[in-house]
Design a protein around this nucleic acid. Structure first.
Lengths: 168, 168
DNA sequence: GACCTAGCATTAGCCGGCTAACTATTATTC
DNA sequence: GAATAATAGTTAGCCGGCTAATGCTAGGTC
């Protein structure tokens, strides 16, 4: 069974699709692979990002996690609730500030660091398996610039800004 | 307030993030922009793909749409149910084959073609606003190759296996 | 005709993402 | 000190994605 992935609307050829079609396609393929790899350790696609932050700083406030993950508070709340239910993290209200909820790793959560790091490496390897190091750097650079363009909040601003942009 | 987007785990700089982190980031930014643009015409991010297919061939079976969108049947069923509820499409069982459900555009659905096409163009323009035509072609090429690597179903295996797989 | 298989669609339920609306707490300001 | 503003989380509800399980229809085979 050929497991296909991605949402596209263009014809068969991938090459000539619009970038707006290719981005969801590659992202879904990547998410699906990540999900199937992470399922080995009982995680769903996306949950690794939370743990990665906690491995760097274990008691972290939910607001901090939300900012670093660049997601909205309700999304974080649901994710953390599931991770807590799964036994990978714990949540308790801060004594110093009654508004904040501190999130910390449990032993099970800490135990995932090595396997998830390994999975993450494997994922990156498969993602870039067809690219030379130079191409990888190029892709990183292009994706970074596209992200900036997409998060530029509409208009490019005053003329000077547009000129700066055209000159790059 | 700077509306941020994407899920990342790497430090501040985008450039040096792994491609596995950049892909979800750029995808989320792209989806968010698409969603806010499509909201103008009452669509949610993703629904445009269904309509794009129907503009090319209006009575299309649900199974066909599912295959072309490269999503799973339940996902298609829910999306189509919403689009039907919103009045953009209609569904009826085929008389020729009692298993298939034929999906066709309503007038409202057809009326979205021009505005959505315009939105799609604007989206692509903002996505590529910082890239030269050569860089756009390069990005398309790189994304296509990465997609192929990600959907390669694990290891490429020994030469004979690859040949077998190619023959299916 | 009876049986079995294949194909199409739906339901239930989970995961990640969002907005809107709400509560609770802390910080400011007067 | 009281009223107000800012901050942190939660709840409800929607959207797109998935798997597993179910039902229904059409095609074969005997």
């Amino acid at each position: 069974m050929t497991r296909s992935t991605s949402t596209s609307v263009d014809g068969g050829g991938l090459e000539d699709a619009s970038i707006s079609s290719l981005i969801p396609t590659v992202s879904k393929a990547h998410r699906n692979l990540a999900g199937s790899l992470l399922a080995e350790v009982g995680l769903a696609a996306g949950q690794q990002f939370v743990l990665m932050l906690l491995w760097k700083a274990s008691p972290t406030s939910q607001a901090d996690l939300t900012k670093q993950l660049m997601i909205e508070p309700p999304t974080a709340a649901k994710m953390l609730a599931r991770l807590e239910k799964a036994g990978f993290i714990e949540r308790r209200r801060s004594a110093a500030d009654g508004r904040v909820v501190l999130v910390s790793l449990t032993e099970s959560g800490r135990a995932l660091e090595a396997p998830v790091t390994s999975i993450w490496t494997r994922l990156e390897e498969q993602t870039t398996s067809d690219l030379t190091p130079a191409e990888q750097a190029q892709l990183r650079h292009l994706l970074s610039r596209v992200t900036r363009s997409l998060t530029a909040d509409g208009d490019p601003g005053p003329p000077e800004a547009a000129a700066r942009q055209a000159a790059r």
